[in-house]
Simulated assay, not measured.
Amino acid sequence: MINIKKINAFLLGATILLSACNNAGDQNAEQRDTTTSAAQASNSKPVKTVLIFGDSLTAGYGLDDPATEAYPSVLQDKIKAAKLPYKVINAGNSGETTAGGLGRIDWVLRQKVDIFVLELGANDGLRGVPVSETAANLQKIIDRVKAKYPDAKLVMAGMQVPPSMGADYANDFKAVFPTLATKNNMVLVPFLLDHVGGVAKLNQADGIHPTKKGAKIVAENVWRVLKGIL
Rank of each mutant, 00 (worst) to 15 (best):
A29H: 12
V189R: 01
A200M: 06
A24E: 13
Y86M: 09
K146N: 06
G128W: 00
N123V: 06
G158R: 01
G92E: 00
E220N: 11
T36C: 11
P162R: 00
T179M: 08
N43V: 12
V222H: 08
T35F: 13
A136L: 10
Y86N: 07
I141M: 09
V74E: 00
A70H: 03
A70P: 03
L188N: 06
K227W: 07
N3A: 10
I142K: 05
A39Q: 13
A99M: 09
L51V: 10
A20V: 15
K78N: 02
L120D: 00
A39C: 08
T15C: 11
R32M: 12
R32P: 09
A99F: 06
N93D: 11
L51M: 13
P150C: 06
K148A: 09
P210F: 00
K148V: 11
A20T: 14
A205Q: 12
E220V: 09
P163F: 00
G54Q: 06
P210L: 01
A81M: 11
S19F: 12
E69F: 05
G54E: 04
N23T: 14
I89W: 02
A135W: 01
P46N: 07
N43D: 11
I141V: 11
I52Y: 00
T49E: 02
K48T: 04
A147Y: 06
T68M: 04
S19R: 09
I2T: 15
L109W: 00
G100P: 09
G197F: 05
Q111S: 12
Q160W: 05
N28A: 15
A135F: 03
V47T: 13
K6R: 14
N185I: 06
L118K: 03
K45D: 02
G54R: 05
Q76A: 01
A205C: 09
N93V: 15
G13K: 11
G92D: 03
Q139H: 08
L84P: 10
V74I: 13
T35K: 14
L118T: 04
Q27F: 15
D114M: 04
K213S: 14
A38E: 14
A70N: 07
S73A: 15
T98H: 01
T98Y: 02
